[in-house]
């Protein structure tokens, strides 16, 4: 029984990690390429989820919801870029933090005005609502496997896009020396807009994908934003590869820690103390991990080359 539980929990950890990666990828892209601290990334994730809920309800089909919500999330991202973020690129990080924090407050309230304060739900698409039998008596929801697949696809797409395409090359060049790229005749402003819009769309995609398993509610992105920040700090700011590995690491440490840390402690101490200590320390594990990484490798596991 214990090994099957271990397998399931490992899968759960991977799935949580992939979810974190979907959010962190856009964040690290914007942060790394544009040197722009975007706290509003979490609300863009929330907007993706709300759009998915709306369009799924309108069309009655999750796939249509996804196809409509994705470009809308992109448009919302670009509107925000033009209205707010564009004017902040030249400012220091503190101004960026303050302004994007303001955007969080504004959008959280706006969402409440438009959709109401009550949480919304999106049903899991009929086709993907079943369970797969992994082993004897061990079920795993199909939809969660779909999330893992989608995350892996995004990771591949990003890897290929950034490293092997012309736009990707410009993005990398723009990251290391924007003035030179501009002097060579590339419209750096538009490039940044594309990167930002893409980042917003990634956040929106994450929101859309989680809508069927999580409640869609105002402020749903705020907690995840913190975890996404931890991911990009551990992975190395600006590194997609770092974000991928750090996200999986955090997903696994968090899930396995929550489920087995208490049992592990039970080997050394009495049961009651073990479960109490376990439940106190388990939620801290990822932050302990972050502190350790920062101590030994202050730039993160895979610092982006500058």
């Amino acid at each position: 029984m214990s090994t099957t539980l271990l397998v399931v929990q490992t899968l759960n950890g991977l799935q949580f990690g992939i979810l974190l990666f979907l959010i962190a990828a856009g964040l690290t892209l914007v942060f790394g390429v544009m040197d722009f601290v975007n706290l509003a990334h979490g609300v863009q994730y929330m907007i993706g989820a709300y759009l998915a809920a709306t369009f799924t309800a309108l069309t009655g089909n999750f796939l249509w919801g996804l196809l409509l919500a994705l470009p809308t999330a992109l448009v919302v991202g670009i509107i925000l870029e033009v209205l707010v973020f564009r004017h902040l690129y030249e400012r220091d990080h503190l101004s960026q933090v303050l302004a994007t924090f303001g955007v969080i407050l504004f959008l959280n309230e706006a969402v409440k005005l438009i959709w109401g304060a009550a949480p919304l739900g999106v049903p899991v698409p009929e086709m993907l609502s079943g369970n797969v039998v992994l082993m004897d008596g061990v079920l795993y929801p199909v939809y969660r496997l779909v999330i893992i697949g989608a995350g892996l696809a995004v990771a591949l797409l990003l890897y290929f896009g950034v490293n092997h395409t012309r736009v990707g090359m410009l993005v990398r060049a723009g990251a290391s020396n924007p003035r030179m790229v501009s002097a060579l005749g590339v419209n750096i402003g538009r490039l940044f807009m594309i990167v930002f819009g893409f980042g917003a769309m990634l956040a929106g995609f994450a929101g859309i994908m989680v809508a069927p398993i999580l409640s869609v509610e105002p402020g749903m992105g705020d907690n995840l934003l913190i975890l996404a920040m931890v991911v990009i700090v551990i992975g190395g700011i600006g590194s997609i590869r770092g974000a991928f590995i750090a996200a999986l690491l955090i997903g696994l440490v968090d899930t396995l820690g929550r489920s087995f840390f208490g049992d592990l402690l039970r080997l050394f101490m009495p049961a009651a103390t073990a479960s109490q200590t376990g439940r106190a320390i388990a939620p801290m594990l990822i932050y302990i991990l972050m502190a350790a990484v920062l101590f030994f490798r202050p730039a993160g596991l895979f610092p982006a080359r500058r």
Binding site: L5, N223, T255, L256, R258, S259
Partner: peptide, 21 residues
């Protein structure tokens, strides 16, 4: 078993796997 989760937890997959077991 008494399971204590963190306040505001989003994903219960780990706890649910435990309950299933």
């Amino acid at each position: 078993d008494e399971i204590y989760t963190s306040l505001g937890q989003l994903d219960f997959s780990a706890e649910l796997a435990r309950i299933a077991a």
